[in-house]
């Protein structure tokens, strides 16, 4: 392989990595998955009886998968500005996620102990809560930034 071919090959590889996004159809698929997961969560909470911990976990994961698909699917009219806005929304989501994970355990502990004499013990928040929060912030920021452009 010549030097030029090697450089071209590297450039294409980098471009593929940088431009990785799913087709716009996945946005709709993500919305359907989220809708189905939320409906099933209500059904599980109010209609089903007995121990449903496995179903609860599966539905939580489904919700995250749906939001992830919405997050990484291309916009209907995707252009370089939309790409930049999406990158910015990931930055905000990352910052918000870190701050949330740092502060929320103290808020939970404080509120719980302020309301009850013997409140909850101090504990870290779960991965589901952090990921859900980050994905929500990303989607909200992305749509807010798009409206502002």
């Amino acid at each position: 392989m010549g030097k030029q071919n090697y450089i071209e090959c590297e450039r294409r590889g980098l471009e593929k990595l940088i431009n990785f996004r799913l087709p716009h159809n996945f946005y709709t698929i993500g919305m359907v998955i989220i809708g189905a997961a939320i409906v099933m969560m209500f059904v599980r909470a109010f209609a089903l009886e007995g121990d449903q911990n496995v179903l609860k976990e599966v539905l939580r994961k489904l919700l995250l998968v749906g939001m992830l698909l919405m997050s990484i699917a291309k916009d209907k009219d995707e252009d370089e500005m939309v790409v930049k806005l999406r990158m910015q929304s990931y930055t905000y989501a990352f910052i918000a996620g870190v701050v949330y994970a740092l502060i929320m355990p103290f808020v939970d502990y404080g509120v719980s102990n302020a309301l009850k004499a013997e409140g909850e013990a101090f504990h870290d928040i779960g991965d589901f809560q952090v990921l859900l929060f980050m994905l929500m912030i990303q989607l909200l920021c992305f749509h807010a930034l798009k409206r502002m452009r």
Binding site: D77, D79, E80, M81, V82, K84, K146, R149
Partner: peptide, 22 residues
């Protein structure tokens, strides 16, 4: 040029600096 109308609007309003390609 293959972008959205909002992108042109943002460029005109100096809210967005386009890439060299654009």
């Amino acid at each position: 040029i293959g972008v959205s109308r909002q992108t042109i609007n943002s460029i005109e309003a100096n809210r967005y600096v386009p890439s060299t390609v654009l």
